[in-house]
Amino acid sequence: MSLWLALKRFQTTWVKVKLIIGILAVVVADFMVLSMLVQGWGAVITAASILILTIVALSATMLHLADRVDYDLGVYKALGATRETITLSFMIELFLTGLLGALLGLLVGVSLLVLLPALLPLKGWSLLTLAEALGFALLFSLLGIFTGAALGAYSVWKKSHRMTAEIFAHVE
């Protein structure tokens, strides 16, 4: 039932477009920088910063979605859903959204990279091959998405602790 809920919201919620674009942008940037890493200690530091930035940026974007759920949360509770069902459904939704954004981001990133060498003289500088950069970008984004979904789900879990009448009393 959590999956059913998550998929329904996935198809209908508007915020998601914004969210997917946000994630897409983060992942593209991620991938571009990774694929242009230059040899040396700088590369390690750059990669580490990108990892942290990815996790922070993706989590913040995804938490934004989990912030706007009070009304639906109240309805689910009023209709007899348990906290587990509700939280799990939001976790699935966030994860799916994140995954879609990241995959689109990588797609855009690769397309750009195929076009870019024609314009800029960066080719041959990079430490990583295209496949390696892709692998790292994917890994970093997945970590970010997992963290984002977990934090989002935690915030929903906490919210769902309030009594239903109180949740409705505080919906803007």
């Binding site: 509770k77 009023a78 209709l79 007899g80 859903a81 348990t82 906290r83 587990e84 009594m163």
Partner: peptide, 11 residues
């Protein structure tokens, strides 16, 4: 507990 009440409510 609230979740028990939720289950009662839906039935």
């Amino acid at each position: 507990p609230e979740d028990v009440v939720s289950k009662l409510r839906r039935r």
